[in-house]
Computed example of a mutant assay.
Amino acid sequence: MMKQFLILSSIISLSLFSSDKIGRLPVYKIAVESLSNTDETIALRDFIKEQIQSTSRGLVSLPLKNSELGTWEFDKEGNPSEETMHSFQRLSGIDKLLLVSTEDGQAVISFVDILHQKLEYRNSLPDSLSKTLVSDFLGFLDKKNIYLALSETGSGSAAQLKINSLKPTYVAGEPIRFEIESTEDNYVYVVLVPENQKGEPVLLFPNQIQNDNFIRKGDRVTIPDKRISFRASSTPSKDRIRAFASREEWKEFQLRGKKEDSFYRLLPPAVTGTKTTARSMMVVPNSLTASIEQSPVMEWEYQILSR
């Protein structure tokens, strides 16, 4: 990631980034494997591969060798067994591992995060509902792709946005509040990408109080609102703030959050309670992330120090 520097004032300077991943398709390289050689399992595996490939939801890798597949066992929290830890060491060149099996009349899908060595998704349904199971998984994968797009893509530097009052360093637990100014009329989306939370971004603006994110030229908005508590994480890290400027509202997304949450999360309709149909499985998800990829983005990094 290449760094430039933006001088915010005579006292504070923060790093401004232009990501080397800007413009790339925000999808993961996925190995799709079956855990048995039954006709039902092979058919389910091939169906999932076709769905991922035909809708560009991921880059499907070449099949793994038997020596690479190994053992995959996880506890209820998704943590791997000791033998599974050895299996992780056999893999390289992929981001995710999708495992398909059929057990006692049940179709089972497991999705493993290779980088963080953790089970991210596991669900099962009767064989007769295997397509519904695949649909549920694709909704989960859409969410992961959106998180990836928010974290790593954008059309380049958003010169029409300025940030003030964000410091280069914070102490763990210290309140964080800053100001965004737009030099053009824009819909503005501000995202926190935390280093210590698997890269899953949190939408800081708009939020449950500041739900109008259209900022006119010359206007300044404090983020978050003073009625919201936003603090640096409790552990040392390097977190990033990404601000997107869009001429159009991101209508294909839904804001979802509970009243007790500090911030809403940005999720696609597929994972916000909207009913999923067989037809929706064929919707090309690029339309979900296109507005993110095409929006100019500015990025600032700040370091969180231990107390």
Rank of each mutant, 00 (worst) to 15 (best):
R240M: 15
K217I: 02
L267M: 11
V188T: 05
I48K: 08
K162E: 08
I7D: 11
E50S: 14
R307N: 13
V112L: 12
Q4G: 15
D219H: 14
V112G: 05
E299A: 09
G154L: 06
V271S: 14
T183Y: 08
A43N: 12
G139W: 04
L91Q: 11
Q197S: 13
T55R: 08
N186C: 12
V100R: 01
Q4P: 06
E249A: 09
I215Q: 04
L16S: 09
L115P: 10
W300E: 09
I30S: 07
E260G: 00
F140M: 07
M281V: 09
T41F: 04
Q117D: 06
P269K: 08
D104S: 15
T132D: 12
N286I: 07
Q53K: 15
T222Y: 03
A31C: 06
A243R: 04
A243T: 04
N196L: 03
A278E: 08
K29V: 12
S92Q: 13
I114P: 01
K251L: 11
I304M: 00
R242W: 04
K131L: 12
V171I: 13
T153H: 02
L288G: 03
L91W: 03
R240Q: 14
E40I: 14
D185F: 00
I52T: 06
S56D: 15
K144P: 01
D113Y: 03
F230C: 05
R45M: 11
S15H: 13
K226P: 04
L119Q: 06
M282L: 13
G199S: 03
V60N: 04
W250R: 10
K29R: 15
T289W: 15
P206M: 03
S19E: 06
D136W: 09
Q51C: 05
M281P: 09
A290G: 01
P224R: 08
G273L: 10
N207Y: 04
T272L: 05
S280C: 07
I163C: 13
D127I: 05
E68N: 08
V190L: 00
K144D: 11
K275R: 11
S262V: 04
G257I: 00
Q210F: 00
A270I: 00
Y170D: 08
I304A: 01
W72N: 06
K226Y: 06
E200P: 01
F88P: 07
E252A: 04
F178E: 14
P296Y: 02
L166V: 05
D136L: 13
N196A: 06
G199I: 01
G93W: 07
S182G: 10
F74I: 05
I292Y: 03
D46L: 15
K131T: 14
R279C: 00
F140Y: 15
Y121W: 05
Q117W: 03
G173E: 09
A31D: 03
F74P: 09
K29S: 10
S233M: 01
H116F: 13
Y187S: 00
A245Y: 02
E301R: 08
L125I: 01
F111L: 13
K3D: 15
I94D: 02
T132G: 08
